[in-house]
Simulated scan of single mutants.
Amino acid sequence: MIKGVKKVENSTPVSIQLNTVISQADGTKEEFTLTSTGEWITKNNIDYLKYEETQEAGTVRTIIKMEEHQAVILRSGALKMRLAFRDGESMMSSYDSEYGTLSLITETKKYTHRIPQEKPGRFYVNYNLEMAGSPVGNYTMTIDYKEVTPR
């Protein structure tokens, strides 16, 4: 490597299958799925997953920064949110609403991340979410992603 020259990002197009299950304290359960395309980037030994989704309010861009024992989900566009996770810990997070920024706390129960090699990559997090001091529910988010082969 030439001194002073940065390594070019390793960007790979991927297909994404996202599944989120939300369990509220009252026993109700909601499940959401999303199929999308995006990119998986490795930079400075940290993995990133980037994708966009279209919601009623507009386009939401999501970047997930995945490290060995912690992760951060950054959402921007029609929805602005920062969710931080560290295995076995509670972390400060935030959600920007039309009423201002609300503080969130994520209590991570389990976090795992596997990069795609022989199997698809997987981002998995199970956490309790608190908004402004009140419990919102338990969330389980699984994102499977694999390289898209060009035609």
Rank of each mutant, 00 (worst) to 15 (best):
residue 25 A to T: 10
residue 25 A to F: 07
residue 25 A to I: 10
residue 25 A to E: 10
residue 26 D to L: 05
residue 26 D to G: 11
residue 27 G to F: 12
residue 27 G to N: 12
residue 27 G to C: 11
residue 28 T to P: 10
residue 29 K to Y: 08
residue 29 K to G: 15
residue 30 E to M: 11
residue 30 E to I: 14
residue 31 E to W: 07
residue 31 E to F: 12
residue 32 F to D: 03
residue 33 T to G: 02
residue 34 L to A: 00
residue 37 T to M: 00
residue 38 G to H: 01
residue 38 G to E: 02
residue 39 E to R: 03
residue 40 W to A: 10
residue 40 W to L: 15
residue 41 I to W: 05
residue 45 N to D: 08
residue 46 I to R: 00
residue 46 I to N: 00
residue 46 I to L: 01
residue 46 I to S: 01
residue 47 D to P: 02
residue 47 D to A: 01
residue 47 D to R: 00
residue 48 Y to D: 03
residue 49 L to T: 05
residue 50 K to Q: 13
residue 50 K to W: 04
residue 51 Y to Q: 01
residue 51 Y to A: 01
residue 51 Y to E: 02
residue 52 E to M: 05
residue 52 E to D: 12
residue 55 Q to G: 04
residue 55 Q to N: 03
residue 56 E to M: 13
residue 56 E to P: 13
residue 57 A to K: 14
residue 58 G to A: 05
residue 60 V to E: 05
residue 61 R to F: 11
residue 63 I to M: 08
residue 63 I to H: 04
residue 64 I to A: 02
residue 64 I to L: 04
residue 64 I to N: 03
residue 65 K to S: 04
residue 65 K to M: 04
residue 67 E to S: 02
residue 67 E to N: 03
residue 68 E to H: 01
residue 68 E to M: 00
residue 68 E to F: 01
residue 69 H to D: 15
residue 71 A to E: 05
residue 71 A to K: 04
residue 74 L to F: 06
residue 77 G to C: 08
residue 78 A to V: 13
residue 80 K to T: 07
residue 82 R to C: 08
residue 84 A to S: 13
residue 85 F to I: 14
residue 85 F to H: 06
residue 86 R to W: 11
residue 86 R to Q: 15
residue 86 R to M: 13
residue 87 D to A: 09
residue 88 G to Q: 06
residue 89 E to Q: 06
residue 91 M to A: 05
residue 94 S to V: 06
residue 94 S to P: 08
residue 95 Y to V: 11
residue 95 Y to W: 14
residue 95 Y to D: 13
residue 96 D to W: 09
residue 96 D to P: 15
residue 96 D to V: 14
residue 96 D to Y: 15
residue 97 S to F: 14
residue 97 S to H: 07
residue 98 E to T: 08
residue 99 Y to A: 06
residue 99 Y to N: 13
residue 99 Y to G: 11
residue 100 G to V: 09
residue 100 G to K: 07
residue 101 T to Q: 09
residue 102 L to Y: 09
residue 102 L to W: 12
residue 103 S to A: 11
residue 106 T to Q: 05
residue 107 E to S: 15
residue 109 K to F: 15
residue 110 K to M: 02
residue 111 Y to N: 00
residue 111 Y to W: 02
residue 111 Y to G: 00
residue 112 T to E: 06
residue 113 H to K: 15
residue 113 H to A: 05
residue 114 R to L: 07
residue 115 I to S: 04
residue 115 I to E: 06
residue 116 P to T: 10
residue 118 E to I: 03
residue 118 E to V: 02
residue 118 E to H: 02
residue 119 K to Y: 12
residue 119 K to E: 15
residue 119 K to Q: 09
residue 120 P to W: 10
residue 120 P to F: 06
residue 121 G to V: 07
residue 121 G to K: 12
residue 121 G to I: 06
residue 122 R to A: 00
residue 123 F to H: 14
residue 123 F to Y: 07
residue 123 F to C: 05
residue 126 N to G: 09
residue 128 N to R: 11
residue 129 L to V: 13
residue 129 L to M: 15
residue 130 E to T: 12
residue 132 A to I: 08
residue 133 G to F: 03
residue 134 S to A: 15
residue 134 S to G: 15
